[in-house]
Design a protein around this nucleic acid. Structure first.
Lengths: 198, 198, 198, 198
DNA sequence: CATGAATGAGACTTCATTCAT
DNA sequence: GATGAATGAAGTCTCATTCAT
């Protein structure tokens, strides 16, 4: 059973973080992981294949974590708080930077793009769950299409990362979370309507 | 006089649209424009230089158009309507796809990244102007930090494009504009407070 | 009558000094002289032709100067003194650096190489004249083949320049002139034999 | 194990001889050695790096040979004789032509220039050893600064090669060795002074 | 399983030179 | 006489990928 496979995956992730999509070459990955370039092709079909696996790997781990922390959150204020923490974790482990690089570099139509669509869909589902919980019983619920707003949330998150990554200005997400907290407070003040159990 | 410079700019833009950032090589641009690769280097220092110029070129043209159409809009419903039209234009001329590719491909720290920051700032300013007009007199104004939300809007727009570009699903922006229209209607129903002229 | 031709010649020389043989491109010369690249091809067949002319131009000027200063020198001490001054002049006007670059860059068999042979021959002749004057009547004269030693002197001068140029160590020629002066003193102490006028 | 590295080194040397510094391109080297251009970059960082290695390689081999042959020579006549043989060897193996090309082509300030300075220093040291042995006990010793004359000898050797290389006139070195032999004979006739052992 | 040398296509860029104006 | 835009060949170097060991 190959432990090396995991090393390759890790090396690819850290290479993405350190050198970007364009700098994630077979040689660079091999050097980052301390193995020979040929190893990559033993465990993966080609670089695209490796990147697909890397993406799946990091997303799965992070999504599990998100779900664990958000499972019983139903107030916006608390949600923002938790998301801020999770976001900081993302940043710390490099997940964010790597995924953003993959989004940036993947060519439409490639296998990597397909996997990306799949992961995007998963994150949208997660957002839908949270949104549904937050909106339960709120009068605003009738005006909001949950899937659409969930999709908007994912898009926003990705875009914010692209900008932050580019200018390295880490105060941007901070300000955004602050603003979100402010709006969350207003939101949480809106009373829930009585409903039959659903 | 240099009409060719403009042809190079156009070729770069269409190449970005057709082959993405990674596919925008000197050769591909030359082929797209029907000139020799050397021409690029006669008019521009670098591919980077060309891309910077291309970005500035398309952004300037589009920003002018946005400003013209949005100058006297002060209701959200109308704003969404106009933005939808402008967005369709963006899509038609390729502006959007090209800019998104550049965002995706630019390496942090590069000259291109710097220009991108600059353009981002400009779009944020435009968003700020619009937001300020929309919020004037609204009770929500006190809870909203205009610059932060403007920045969020730009981020969202960029992220939406990244996703749309990747999976080619043009129904996403349509759904989002619909949702935005719906929220705009609610928003426009909130009455403005009386204010002293200002 | 073309004054521009002279400007091209000067530009080529200063370009040789500033950027070396390899950096002496048509564009670089044009920029150095403040004219369009096309001008070069109006006055000269090609770059090789220009370099040939440049070499001839600077050598002629310097050779005239050497001959003027050395015409009536017949003692080694004085010769070394004068040569040191002329060498400093060479350095100041860039003659030396330019010629050295041409020697370095010229391909055997090229027209430039042919011109170089010709100029070398001229400098050897000048050296022969000086050597003959210095050796007149000396007992050493019988052991010395003037043309051979003259050729050695030119070779030495060229080699010294190559080394000096490479490491930028201007103390080397200084030390060599000092040593030469020391040997010249010894040489001048050897009495001349009586001879019939010759 | 890398036998190919050696082939690349040899190819570079022969390419230098055959096509000169300017003609020693990656492609030309690859063709000369019968391998793909990419191989060069597998074994060396750079063309510069390869040239540095080539220089070191040939110089080391030759210097060892010089030292072996000259170790116990203390008379000028014999020295000239040995040097003439060594020179013929240099010519035969291409060492001389290659090194001369490198001297000619190296840009001041480059890594190659630095290596060249180093090698120059080594040849000067060798010359110093020989000169010291020849001058031991001679009255002339007091007027001669060994390091300076050693440096002059190296410069002369280099310059002679530049000239010979350019016009392909192999009679020049022959004449010079003849002249040197003649002077050596005179020199060897000067008696050594008595000295305390040292 | 793993290695690392080798390949060859292709990227960017520079340059001498030409030519219409 | 002079200009400067354009060309196309050639140069350096990188990289995904293969393959013998």
């Amino acid at each position: 059973m190959s432990d090396t496979r995991g090393r390759v995956l890790d090396a690819a992730l850290s290479c993405l973080v350190a050198h970007g999509f364009g700098g994630t070459t077979a040689r660079a990955i091999a050097q980052a992981g301390g193995f020979a370039p040929g190893v990559i092709y033993y465990h993966f079909t080609d670089l695209d294949d490796l990147l697909v696996a890397t993406l799946a790997h990091t997303c799965e781990a992070r999504a599990k974590r998100y779900r664990a922390e958000l499972s019983d959150v139903d107030r916006a204020g608390r949600a923002v708080e938790v998301l801020r923490t999770l976001y900081d974790e993302d940043t710390a482990v490099g997940h964010i930077a790597a995924v953003q690089e993959i989004y940036a570099g993947a060519r439409p139509g490639s296998r990597l793009a397909a996997q990306l669509s799949l992961e995007t869909r998963r994150w949208e589902e997660l957002a839908e769950e949270l949104l549904t919980a937050l909106l339960r019983g709120k009068p605003l619920a009738s005006v909001v299409r949950v899937p659409v707003v969930a999709s908007a949330a994912v898009a926003f998150y990705l875009g914010m990362e692209t900008l932050t990554h580019l200018d390295g200005d880490r105060s941007r997400p901070a300000a955004l979370f602050d603003q979100a907290a402010r709006i969350a407070t207003v939101f949480d003040r809106i009373p829930r309507l009585r409903r039959r159990s659903s």
